[in-house]
Design a protein around this nucleic acid. Structure first.
Lengths: 676, 676
DNA sequence: ATCCACACGTGACGC
DNA sequence: TGCGTCACGTGTGGA
């Protein structure tokens, strides 16, 4: 919100803080030359996304946009994460792809919305970012072209985050159903600040798909109405077979049909970078939609062939200081002469590796950053421990000071992730025993070594559990290593030769992830979650629901009372009441309910009710009198055989009724059967 | 409710149906000789309870009652279960122990409440049960002594069940917090039919502890106020370290302190009957509080030494027919001459095994019921797959016709339970390699055999996974069996020699159980749970909460609007408004509320209430009378100045109250502030 | 150091 | 028949 103010320091602070605390990853901005109409006019590949390998994520966004029939302007993947300290669910920038709008969009973007001051502001910010990335002083030569509204909107989206189901993406995530807003009107009335801002910046259509552990948002300056085509595309590219929505409600988001195999292949590619590294054919399937050169580039970046970056990670504090320096610089002044060529528009950069390494310094330091180490390293990074993916801490860092916690909080699962990855490597090597880089020939030798080159995860060569390894150990201790055992059944665990368990663990992983997402979502909607514990959360949710339910019905009954009271009041106001609705009371009269009402002097009235004695008619009458706010001055009840006669003298305290009103009101409350 | 009517056919039907459909387990009734003051005056050991080995459960109930400082009259374990078809959470009879009350209780029980007709009714029912159990025609020689109120209450409790948090036990289960009702007034005003009934039968104190997967209820004819002593005792005997409550709210139910080791030992005993069989010392710790003969007896019953019972299970329909026969017999007439000696008061009976077998015919049939088979068999039974423990289907069976489903639904986890047990056996044998019964010498030989004698679970000798076994297989296939490997480290899995993982798995099991309980509870409070899937449930809960929330606030705002609207209208209408705003009337009633209750002849009572005339005390009184099901025979209300005097003559229709009860009940409903 | 909560991989089972 | 869901046992990190 205030990010949108003209005071750019807050925004810069957000940017800075993100880079500062969590190692903001590779940077690129919307192309400062918005004229380029070709695909990949501008690419952002910042924060790593859980589940999604960064490169394939980026590629998939691009694929989605570029191959879509509709003209989408941008695609953003909002990465979901959770602040372990507060339990808040956070949707933060995961990755984005900006294509740009049509020609008239640009014209409009340039002409109308953005004033000169705006432009100056935008350029200033871009310059700041530029300098931040390049490490040099701010340079304005990079930002010569105008920054269109949509570009700006896209850019600024990076600073957005959505807590606990806020906003359009949050709603999509929590509800599990895609939301489709087409048309400025829809955007303007949407219960989401972002939608309104987008509309303000010329966005006409915004769609949010819940996807895995995040939300995919598509935006367009054009009017795009719901189509199954894009939905299918999204499903194919992003689905984890886990997209079907829990809630009923006939969403258009049908469960994935027969794409499961394709999706599984995609999963394989995105969760097993090793497999991708060795050019898994299933990845090529995706790849052929994009430039193969890009794949190569991204592969290179994976390898950290730049030693300086790994050097940096060995001392994270240096990076911190560096960012700090820039931060001060930015606060002191802007617009210094340029020094480095701007990085904007470049798809890959050293900075990317830098950030990738720095995002998890504690493990990185223990690694030998050469050869296969990076594979493990990288694959570590791909995992999605709910908190502390940098994209999330980017935003949480400037929202609360606990970002340090979150980044620490994932340390736990890192080891597990590493061991899992190791398994993946084992499996991945199945078909490529002569993989190019390192790839130890025998899988059974890979695991326990700890000295060769592959160190699995957190604590050195510690007991890296995973029971199969234990069994291996046992075998090794009982016998000497049997080299001829390896060719027999390469990997080990499979038990049955099928590689189904590999997909199985992935599926299970996703299931857990989904469940956890739901838990987080639940935690978000339930107030006063006592403990962070799951069971407690459920218990609280239950009691909350019951409480809400009971409160609901009490409020509703009160509402009912008020409503009828009001109705009576209004009727009376018209001075000529004429029609108090008692047409349905007529037949109930036949059941032996007889009401007699007489208005006495002043505010007093006499009521006489005769009915069957069963079912506590006294309670009903008195309840009705209470609802109508009639104070009892005198009453008497007597029963003769099965008939009860109630007589009461009441005072109309807060308002007065006519005889007909009173009669009608009483009838409706007494003669009608109780709603229960 | 109608179970309490004089028409005994409904109750008998309940009994019958339970035995009919789900194989009602071992039966015994409250001792017909209530004079015996000694421990174990009467023991019920019917439905099996999850988690709890039936015997130790019974023993624990007894231990609890007999060693308590206070004089509890009975203890009941309500077993929680879930109907997988409907998702309803069910609390049904798990087990119970009846001690009996003090002398004057018995006197009172005999003299006052129960009329001769009541006695006849009770005896008749007991006779029916007797004949049902013994398999012969009804015999009245078993029921010579009077059946006291409390005995009757206890007996009839077996037919009770609580759905979705109903009643006192249900509330305790759902809230996770114990509820303590002491004093007839408390019982009478409790929002629980059962409490009122208990109070009617002379119970003065009822306490419900949520415990593991059920609720422990203690009752007493005396007044017992909250004490930490019994709470601790319950915790020690029944706690799974998982008792701490989710909801906030400062309950007195503090998390378990350092009893964990003791509790874990108990757990070990109760979940690992094999270990108990070989006289685990940790179980003796419990055992020495009870009669060792009982242990032996229960052990015998475990062994199915009666071949006819297993024969019965081979054809479940025969049992059905048998019950059907009895059912008809019962409907045709009562009081036939005796044939068999009554089983009442006997602690163990053939029927027990009969029921135990019949509860899971589909697995049992595949088993060779000899030797070690029973151990596995039994341990299968001890587990707690949420649905279809017979104690639950006892009630669900006559509530809905889906009991068949539930009994089928647990088949799945039976195998897992068996495999777990197998592991336990492995571990348990550590110290008893020469265990009496069978216990194959080599653990590695135990698992895969499938032909020797031990068949693990559902499908014959199929791949009985458990990865360690897989590795064993691998070893076996690569090499020949190596007998010298066994002495090396026995079982195998432990990885580390410590037995900590054993407690660990138990704890984890309990945690899962608790979580599942919460899930079921949640499912109960959330309407329209689309799929039975956990994630969907969570999703539905979330959307339900949000929906409820939004609806809530819309209703509330509407309420607000109506209220203000009304106020405006009132103000403009009222020429002399006065001040009818009375929201701060909270403490008002406490001063100047006077209730006078007099029990008149028969079921009639006179009530006189004097209070301030504001806030519609008539509605409150009449509402209270309705809640207590008091029919108004006559009433009069008059107001003198600010004081209102209400006078009513009522008839106690469905229930009788003493003067104190009535007074307390009325006071709590009228004088105390409204719960909203 | 002990307990507790969690995530993970894995086999089972139903569609 | 794969695929999804589940429960289980196990390892681990935080209190």
């Amino acid at each position: 919100m205030n990010l949108w103010s003209d005071d750019n320091s807050s925004m810069m602070e957000a940017f800075m803080a993100s880079a500062d605390l969590s190692g903001y990853p590779s940077w690129a901005a919307p192309s400062p030359a918005p004229m380029t109409p070709a695909p990949a006019a501008a690419v952002l590949s910042p924060a790593p996304a859980s589940y999604f390998n960064q490169e394939t994520l980026q590629q998939r966004l691009q694929t989605l946009i570029e191959t879509a029939k509709e003209t989408w302007t941008y695609a953003i993947f909002w990465q979901s994460s959770v602040d372990v300290a507060t339990g808040d669910s956070l949707l933060g920038w995961g990755d984005g792809y900006y294509k740009g709008g049509s020609e008239e969009d640009k014209r409009r973007g340039r002409s109308s919305a953005s004033s000169a001051a705006d432009q100056e502001h935008r350029k200033r910010v871009l310059r700041q970012l530029n300098s931040l990335i390049s490490g040099g002083p701010p340079s304005d030569e990079a930002v010569e072209e105008e920054v269109t509204d949509t570009e700006w909107f896209f850019l600024v989206s990076m600073t957005q985050s959505f807590v606990n189901g806020d906003g359009l993406p949050g709603q999509a995530l929590f509800s599990g159903q895609p939301s489709w807003l087409a048309g400025g009107g829809m955007l303007a009335v949407a219960p989401c600040e972002r939608a309104r801002q987008g509309q303000q910046f010329g966005i006409q259509t915004i769609v949010c798909f819940p996807v895995g552990s995040g939300v995919l948002e598509l935006g367009s300056t054009g009017l795009i109405f719901h189509s199954n085509e894009i939905t299918n595309k999204v499903r194919i590219l992003f689905s984890f077979n886990g997209l079907e929505v829990a809630g009923g409600g006939g969403g258009s988001w049908i469960p994935p049909p027969q794409f499961s195999s394709a999706a599984a292949a995609v999963n394989h590619g995105e969760t097993d970078p090793a497999a991708m590294w060795i050019s898994d054919p299933s990845v090529v399937e995706i790849k052929d939609l994009v430039s193969p050169a890009e794949i190569a580039a991204s592969k290179q970046s994976v390898q950290f062939e730049n030693p300086s970056s790994s050097g940096l990670t060995e001392n994270p504090s240096s990076m911190h200081m560096q960012q700090q320096f820039h931060h001060e610089q930015q606060q002191n002044g802007v617009g210094n002469p340029p020094a480095q060529p701007p990085l904007f528009g470049n798809r890959e950069s050293n900075f990317s590796e830098f950030a990738m390494n720095s995002s998890r310094p504690q493990q990185q330091q223990q690694f030998n950053p050469a050869e296969t180490g990076e594979i493990l390293n990288f694959s570590e990074r791909k995992r999605n421990p709910p908190p502390a993916i940098p994209g999330a801490s980017l935003f949480s860092s400037h929202q609360n000071p606990k970002a340090e916690d979150t980044s620490k909080g994932n340390k736990r699962s890192a080891a597990a992730a590493a061991s899992r990855v190791r398994n993946n490597v084992d499996e991945g090597m199945l078909s490529f025993s002569s993989a190019p880089t390192t790839c130890p020939s025998s899988a059974s030798q890979v695991k326990p070594n700890g000295s060769g080159g592959i160190v699995a995860g957190g604590g050195g060569g510690e007991s890296e559990h995973s029971d199969l390894e234990a069994s291996v150990k046992e075998v090794e201790s009982s016998r000497v290593v049997e080299p001829e055992k390896r060719p027999r059944k390469r990997g080990r665990k499979p038990a049955n030769g099928r590689e189904e368990p590999l997909n199985h663990v992935e599926a299970e992983r996703q299931r857990r992830e989904k469940l956890n997402q739901r838990f987080y979502a639940l935690r978000a909607v339930v107030p006063n979650v006592s403990k962070m514990d799951k069971a407690s959360l459920l218990g609280d949710a239950i009691s909350y629901i019951t409480e809400l339910k009971s409160k609901m019905q009490s409020v509703e009954s009160e509402n009912q009372g008020l409503r009828s009271q009001l109705e009576v009041l209004k009727n009376e106001k018209e001075t000529s009441p004429g029609r108090p609705d008692q047409q349905q009371a007529a037949d109930r009269c036949l059941q032996g309910v007889k009401i007699e009402v007489r208005i006495l002097a002043g505010p007093e009235a006499m009521i006489r009710l005769q009915c069957a004695r069963m079912n506590h008619p006294t309670a009903r009458l008195m309840g009705a009198l209470k609802e109508l706010d009639l104070e009892v001055l005198y009453a008497s009840v007597s029963v003769v055989k099965e008939v009860m006669v109630q007589q009461a003298t009441v005072k109309m305290a807060s308002r007065r009724y006519t005889q007909e009103q009173l009669s009608a009101a009483l009838y409706s409350r007494i003669a009608e059967l109780p709603s229960a």
